[in-house]
Design a protein around this nucleic acid. Structure first.
Lengths: 340, 340
DNA sequence: TTGTATGCGTTATCAA
DNA sequence: TTGATAACGCATACAA
């Protein structure tokens, strides 16, 4: 098939390309009847305006990018679901990029995307707070709005949507203390990353406030991947013999469950566990898992809304506020007082 | 900032746009030194070739679309992960579209994508086999390759990647029978959809082969959404009193677990359960869930590979074969013989 | 209400 | 090895 384009369609209708073009936009400078005629014929010939040509002309892509560390994670999934709802309602398309927690990849994506490929970017960052973020300035220079969610760089002045990480971590730790724990391990992937840091602080402050010592060895540095985490915990649990465990990320609680199963450690009898988690089936685990649940879907909606405000606002008055959503602590069996 | 483009960069370097353009492609018709100089200056000025202009010119988008019914599903997640691995290795970008199991949306996406927006499409279909699929012919007319995975339309002649649904369903049913079940319920969302149909057949044939009657009332039609499923099962379980339950989709097993918990039905004592599922934490459920696990990641890789073969092959010799991957039955406590 | 002409930023062809 | 030019398909300013 030779491809159909606006010119051929115009010829077939004995009209000019401008008129045809007008039929496909909400342009009122066109006769209703001709518009109908054009659309009818277009359907017949299978014509659709070429997206790339339109974008080139309009300098608008109607596309946004979402950059996340990974997909195999209920949290990001739900966020993307929220984003999708907002985006598709506005007729926007979504490009998805996975950094795999690789900082270099993040830089590469951003560079790639700063060429007008997208109208805006939503990102949960992969790198460490300490690292250089100059590559992000390019976006500002090019007027491409950026919104952070969950994992953020604090030194970059863009709109951010997070949850109350510090407070939730404080509560979670307090919850374990009140359940009778004294030696509470904190599992974290990167305690220098935005969220890891905040959650660590909440953990520390809760200990302090309840007169418990902060013991650095109880902070267990974990990995992004499952198998190394199993190894780490196989060593750490017998060595540290904690009676409480607070996981900063769902995946770490899962690993802990597996290792407890292996080593015959009773939850919550010998070890009480609570974790940040977006797992819908937390109640079905053995034992059911106490969670701090972040409003992930809502977060996607909010972040997307901020992003579209920036896009529609023409990048002029860039809002740079931070929205903090509340997480919910749901106690279940894994952290119940012994005997229950 | 006034935007930088190839022309300005060329001026700044006292070169022609053609030369600059060559520097950004693997074009050997260029002096190594000038190329270096161009790239250096480009970095300095923050120049990146405009994606839309390039695409318009080259008629290649280096972008593919993946259309899935939903995201909140470990299976699709893992498939997309596989796809992403293949695509990013080839420098392709991924657009993601969610149908929400809405057939109309699927049609709309396909129409949208038939304008050259993408170089290829990977889809797990949302509609019923019975419905009209003429909108898909447009893709063929426009030489946009399409590959189906998991949920397919059999009447459309494109490459397909599925798993051995019939055999797995047969095995799963047989597994329950051998565990002592006689009244085995089959939970399915759409028994007319490709996979639902195959799995139903496997279920039926296994019953027959083992001399058990096929009772239509034991086939429970479920919903895509969680809450309605709870309602359905709250009614169905007490009414049917099955001693075995085979869920065609992970989500249905989850719903069954919740309802059993509510109604105090013992798994596996009173009811044995097995389900298609890609849940990594199936071993941690209470009780651990017996699964038929599809090689989802592998499926993503295979489907993406087929897609790129079609894309790179210029859409000429369109392969239309079907790849069938093997699923794995993993027995766990939820279907163990009473007492274990 | 419709048509003409121009350019969006890039790349391919051809000539130098 | 480099440069001039045309074209990709569309949308807008302007003229009719």
């Amino acid at each position: 098939m030779d491809p159909i384009n606006i010119k051929k369609l115009a010829e077939a209708l004995n009209l000019s390309t401008s008129t045809v073009s007008r039929a496909f936009r909400n342009n009122n400078d066109i006769n209703k009847a001709t518009k109908e005629r054009i659309l009818a014929r277009a359907r017949e010939l299978g014509y659709q305006p070429n997206h790339y040509a339109s974008n080139l002309r309009e300098r608008k892509s109607r596309t946004i990018a979402v950059i996340v560390p990974e997909l195999a994670n209920n949290f990001f999934l739900q966020v993307i679901n929220g984003l999708e709802q907002v985006a598709s309602a506005k007729g926007y398309h979504i490009l998805i990029y996975l950094t795999g927690n690789d900082y270099e990849k993040e830089i590469s994506f951003i560079n790639h995307l700063s060429n007008g490929r997208v109208d805006g970017i939503m990102m949960s960052v992969s790198g460490e707070t300490a690292s250089e973020h100059n590559y992000l300035h390019k976006l500002r220079d090019k007027n491409i709005p950026l919104v952070f969610f969950d994992r953020i760089y604090e030194d970059i002045d863009v709109p951010k949507v997070t949850t109350d990480d510090y407070e939730s971590a404080f509560q979670a730790t307090e919850h374990l203390i009140q359940a009778g724990c004294r030696d509470i391990a904190f599992l974290v992937i990167n305690k220098n990353l935005s969220i890891g840091k905040k959650r660590l602080q909440g953990y520390q402050d809760a200990l302090r406030q309840h007169g418990l010592p902060y013991r650095e060895e109880l902070v267990v540095d974990c990995h992004h991947d499952h198998d190394p985490n199993l190894e780490i915990l196989r060593q750490a649990l017998p060595a540290l013999k904690p009676d409480g465990l607070f996981a900063a990320v769902e995946r770490l609680a899962i690993a802990a469950y597996f290792v407890c199963q292996e080593q015959g450690i009773q939850i919550p009898g010998q070890l009480k566990i609570i974790s940040f988690s977006s797992l819908e089936i937390a109640p079905l685990l053995n034992p059911s898992l106490s969670t701090i649940t972040q409003p992930a879907f809502e977060m996607g909606i909010q972040a997307a809304t901020l992003l579209f405000e920036a896009i529609d606002g023409g990048g002029q008055e860039v809002k740079t506020g931070q929205i903090v959503l509340k997480s919910e602590l749901v106690p279940r069996q894994s952290s119940s007082r012994a005997g229950n």
